[in-house]
Design a binder for these strands. Structure first.
Lengths: 144, 144
DNA sequence: ACAAATTAAGTCGTACGCGATATAATGTTG
DNA sequence: CAACATTATATCGCGTACGACTTAATTTGT
């Protein structure tokens, strides 16, 4: 059965399960992050800040593979929520330096239970998780 | 160095590369799908229709892991573009039956080059692709 | 030194994705 | 058979994502 359209079948796509799992994950995070008044994207921005303490927007763009036009309004919202502060870098006025407020720092402890809860929702073996992780980063790293 | 916050580090997350790769794929598809006047989500809806010829919205929701509030406006757009037809099922007026128009059928041949072009963009070994596919569907199938 | 190129943020318009909710048709149950 | 539950679709509001473009600051090339 030499089907010339085989490549167009949903079941023969890798992109579709990637897309569907990504949506699924965002849905799973939502109730947990609602408690912290964060969306998923806001959460990964906060994760970077909890590690780095101080970053510019450019660094966030590269680290999270997002564009300025996604991050700019998102950072404005995090500022309105009182989690981050934005100020111009005095040595280069183009740079936007983003730092955590006290409330932003305090959120880190309340976020500790989130990865735990998420891990309980998925049931991958350590090998599956490691292999998935490696392949995904291979794809991401090829795109620089 | 027993870091109590290790689980919050971006590099220790599986969700982040999944999210980033999903975004990356949508970006890679965009220029190809622009030629067909389709977005990525519209494209996977069309893929289902190219296989099934006739479906209801419910079937699309389950197959694509999307909600009615995403698909309803999207189907309206596909109808406006002239690719699909929507009509009520006479035996159950709640059911929306969706079929391809001639233009929708014709699009299938023009879409044939898309999976090819995408495959060229990513460089996974057959083993990596197979393992990725299997793990992603394990995650999706657990969520039914 | 100064016009041209580059870089960093941001704005605008379009299209998802989804929780909450609404509406209408069909099933069910006492 | 009438109240009630269930099911399928749709609407609303919010928050991303991103391409195209704009603005402002710095760097570069001659």
């Amino acid at each position: 059965m030499n089907d010339k359209y085989a490549s167009l079948r949903l079941k023969n796509q890798l992109c579709f399960p990637l897309y569907a799992v990504s949506n699924l994950i965002t849905r799973k995070y939502k109730p947990l992050l609602d408690e912290l008044d964060l969306t998923y994207t806001q959460y990964i921005v906060m994760m970077v800040l909890w590690e780095e303490n101080q970053v510019n927007e450019q660094f966030l763009c590269r680290t999270l593979c997002l564009k300025s036009n996604t991050l700019a309004p998102l950072l404005k919202k995090l500022e309105e929520k009182g989690y981050v502060r934005k100020e111009k870098d005095s040595s280069d006025e183009r740079n936007l330096v983003i730092t955590l407020t006290d409330a932003g720092v305090a959120l880190k402890d309340r976020a500790l239970s989130v990865p735990e809860c998420i891990a309980r929702e998925f049931h991958l073996t350590p090998e599956e998780a490691a292999s998935l992780y490696k392949t995904l980063y291979k794809i991401l790293d090829e795109d620089r």
